[in-house]
């Protein structure tokens, strides 16, 4: 719509390199020509040199960082602000005209039944995804923390789903969940349980995508937990062993309290990830968003699904951004950075 800011994106490399060269040359000439200067002259020269150095640094800085900064401005910051503008419009994607409606889109999102359904689904998905991957991840990390051969290979295997395409993973699980031909149906039949018809029911749909998300994500939690566990001082645990504290007692009295920063860190990142990273699984397993329209999915469905309500979609995007901003602010405020960045 307003592409001006993006036109400047191409790399200004050539132009700036020349500017640097020409600015450097007269600088030397001036310095060489000044004969035994007094204090004031010296001061002025120093100032001039400083200014030259600064402008030379600026040219270099723009040469090095400019393209990236321009791209970030054009494709991250500009969208952020134009979304705020679009969010005040009643506007269909592709339509030439739009009606300003003030904050109506926001009010609709927070008060309409369909908007509240999005919050409900997002809440359940986030809760299930975060609790599931963190609890299972911690259990796996506790096992991998033992000194047994083969644990490095096991760690690699457990982490691997995290780097795989969400679309591919979702297709595989789609097959596994098939109530008539899927592997899970066969597995449940062994125990005499009939497979639910996952796809037909909105609630089962949500359970299904949570399971797949947890499967993909728990390796990340396990590896971060493992790093946390390995930083628990061994002498503390040995002291507890000498006091004949059992493994369960050791875990709850020593390990878990020392693990609190890791738990908090994972809690925050997992909440953010589950709100932003799940789109490919959701879209592939439940293309219409039946029971699975979390906030990111809703942004997509509203503007690019059947409704084409671009203004409403933009409002949801703005709400999502500020939600994430709030969560990150809490993290920065309350989490000690050194715990994670060493």
């Amino acid at each position: 719509m307003r592409p001006q800011s993006t036109r400047s994106a191409p790399n200004p490399r050539g132009g700036c390199a020349i500017a640097v060269g020409t600015e450097h040359a007269p600088a030397r000439g001036n310095d060489a020509g000044s004969p035994a200067p007094d204090q004031a002259q010296l001061e002025a020269a120093r100032k001039r040199a400083h200014r030259r150095k600064l402008s030379k640094n600026w040219s270099l800085f723009i040469l090095f960082a400019g393209p990236n900064i321009l791209l970030i401005l054009a494709f991250i910051y500009y969208p952020l602000f134009s979304n705020m503008y679009y969010s005040t419009l009643d506007w269909r994607l592709g339509a030439r005209t739009a009606t300003p409606v003030g904050l109506d889109n926001y009010i609709t999102f927070f008060t309409s039944p369909s908007g509240q359904e999005v919050w409900r689904v997002t809440g359940i998905f986030t809760l299930g995804a975060v609790a599931g991957s963190m609890i299972l991840g911690l259990l796996i990390a506790l096992v991998l923390n033992k000194r047994i051969p083969g644990r490095t290979a096991a760690r690699t295997a457990v982490f691997s789903p995290y780097v795989l395409s969400g679309v591919g993973v979702a297709l595989v699980w789609d097959f596994i969940f098939d109530p008539n031909r899927g592997a899970l149906m066969h597995l449940l039949a062994v125990f005499g349980i009939e497979s639910p018809s996952w796809k037909l029911d909105a609630d089962w749909n949500l359970v299904m995508v949570i399971i797949v998300y947890v499967w993909k994500n728990l390796g990340y939690c396990a590896v971060v937990f493992l790093a946390g566990l390995q930083s628990v001082p061994r002498d503390l645990i040995e002291a507890a062993m000498i006091d004949k504290a059992g493994a369960v007692r050791r875990f709850f009295s020593i390990v878990l309290p020392l693990l609190t920063p890791t738990v908090f860190f994972l809690l925050v990142t997992n909440i953010i990830f589950s709100m932003t990273n799940a789109f490919d699984i959701l879209r592939t397993m439940t293309p219409t968003g039946h029971g699975t329209n979390t906030i990111i999915f809703e942004i997509y469905l509203q503007s690019f699904g059947q409704y084409q309500r671009a203004g409403y979609s933009a409002a949801i995007a703005v709400v999502l951004f500020f939600t994430l901003f709030l969560i990150t602010a809490v993290q920065l405020r309350y989490v000690e950075r050194k715990v994670h960045y060493q």
Binding site: M1, Y78, N83, S303, A317
Partner: peptide
């Protein structure tokens, strides 16, 4: 500014980038 950009998920910028 770059750190803040780190927080913006692609879904948020999707619609304006599509138009651009």
């Amino acid at each position: 500014g770059i750190l803040v950009a780190l927080m913006v998920p692609p879904e948020v910028s999707m619609l304006p980038n599509y138009l651009t």
